[in-house]
Design a protein around this nucleic acid. Sequence first.
DNA 1: TTGTAGGCGTTATCAC
DNA 2: GTGATAACGCCTACAA
Lengths: 349, 349
Amino acid sequence: MPANRRTTLKDLARELGVSTATISNAFNRPDQLSPALRERILGTAKRLGYGGPDAKARSLRTGRSRIIAVILAESLTYSLNDAVASEFLSGVAEVLDNRGHTLLLLSSRQTQAQIPGSASMADGFIVYGLIPSLALLESLPSQSPLVSVDFDIAGRPTVHVDNEAACHAIAAHALRTPAKRPGIINLRLTATPLNGRISSDHRLLPPERTITRSRLSGFHRALGEAGVDTEQVPMWNIEENTFEVCAPVISEILDLPASERPDLLLCMSDRIALTVVTMAEQRGLRIPEDLRITGFDGIAEGQYRAPRLTTVRQNSVEKGRIAARIILGLAPAEPSLLATELLIADSCP
Amino acid sequence: MPANRRTTLKDLARELGVSTATISNAFNRPDQLSPALRERILGTAKRLGYGGPDAKARSLRTGRSRIIAVILAESLTYSLNDAVASEFLSGVAEVLDNRGHTLLLLSSRQTQAQIPGSASMADGFIVYGLIPSLALLESLPSQSPLVSVDFDIAGRPTVHVDNEAACHAIAAHALRTPAKRPGIINLRLTATPLNGRISSDHRLLPPERTITRSRLSGFHRALGEAGVDTEQVPMWNIEENTFEVCAPVISEILDLPASERPDLLLCMSDRIALTVVTMAEQRGLRIPEDLRITGFDGIAEGQYRAPRLTTVRQNSVEKGRIAARIILGLAPAEPSLLATELLIADSCP
DNA sequence: TTGTAGGCGTTATCAC
DNA sequence: GTGATAACGCCTACAA
């Protein structure tokens, strides 16, 4: 037994003159052996610096690692700095933590096109958001539980919010006060990347797999019901939900001549809406008199300072909790649809 | 070979009539066998649904998992929603991703007092922030590389920012314009939890292990140099860097009678400083005329909207990168001290 | 270029 | 209540 080797269960067994099975039981099934012996084992374990069964060996033997992987559609950098994704992860982490599991963070946008092999150690996978290609998932063990969030994978359980209904509700609310020039700011809606005005030339992402398409349907339905010709409603697209990417597009909108500038902007995220608020204030536009704004998500930041955002609150933390429960087998592996809540505040009373 | 078992390297070898070593080489050392054979192996692997060597078995055999764990001092919920921690994690993730490693997220504040056993599968550990007790780390494999960030662990490499110097610099800048009633808002400085005014009865955390003590030293040194009696400078403490926790304490400060209300507030984080800005505006206080405010961290949010925050920028992303490089052995395992940058803006010109 | 065999540290299934 | 033994799936000398 070389001194610089980690002590193993076998070393302990030899030291104590008992079998390896007994040591294993001492750690995993206390009821399977006498308290006295167990005490003795745990004692000398501590003395020899044995910290319990090796996780790698145990995972090979049992087939389970107690690790759950979350595969994020966006980059880690983006996701970690996005309030909605962070809340989702909080929800996941909360449940995992409670059940002694840990969280492995992966992104579908890594330098390596494939998901690292080490990921397949996970006992289950939560896929958050529309990933660029389902081919990514092929390297994952096909037997492991997998749940998708905010989009669908055939034959797998899903956690969703009813985006269409929520967007219909908030647009209907907004249109109760007639808008002369409504406009829509979309989040990653076009088939090819675009930051700017969407023209009829642009193709959009396929409707069945994309929450932003559902959100747009909701907006359009409400606009139609209000007698607005949706064809005439200008739309802009934003690729990433960050200040840096939003700002130029929003400048473009707010710097239109007053006769063309929208007086109502339906935004697909609070981040976008908040940036509109900030930039509108910089230009001396009054909210809501000159410009009404709605968001989506209900992030905390939108409710802190005046004008508070009119938005749809989706419970991202709960989405995370549910996804985690499904993966751990604590909830049935079936599609789950969460309710949203309309938050009416200053930006569009 | 039962149908419902995952196909293994051995199955593949049998199927092809070659040895297991050859299959292993086909995946791990392409140069060790003829391209033709390799092609054939990879082909039938795909056909049989063999997705490459099993990560659990491989990790047992090689002793490495290609997983790096980050142990966060704060809860996951807090850390994920905190801009500074998120940036740090981005930096870590960036380097790990580049080297084919993945990120396991742990918190020292889990429901279980101990770190889950599965964590010890990691090849290395990055400890971010002052954890409640070093005993937590005892369950970790003592041989694995470990680096601490923003605090010290004896005998381990560390990544730090020079908090004392940075805080001296920003306070010295602020005091170039004399302050009648300077005040300090600290972040987790007292030995026992406190949200409110610090009196002389309160004990503070030990200076050698706490960045907030270093920051306070910097403030005090600058105040002393400006001829201010630091004993007379009121201090408040905040336990958590969130709006909800900050707001009541800040109310208490701003609602003091005008003759007692500070006209300069040195804050230990941008989050605190931004909350001061928001709440001061709500009360009609002018910044910087009635109240000057400094922050710490240099988070993006502080630079977006007017008044922009005067603060110290610390490069959290780079901290993460360095910690990850040390863990992966790409950088020497020695203490690293990052420079900070004074950002002078509207809130304290 | 390919094959053989031993072992990584553990747990499950039996016996006793 | 305790012990022997066979996997778990893979990697890597070393031999051929």
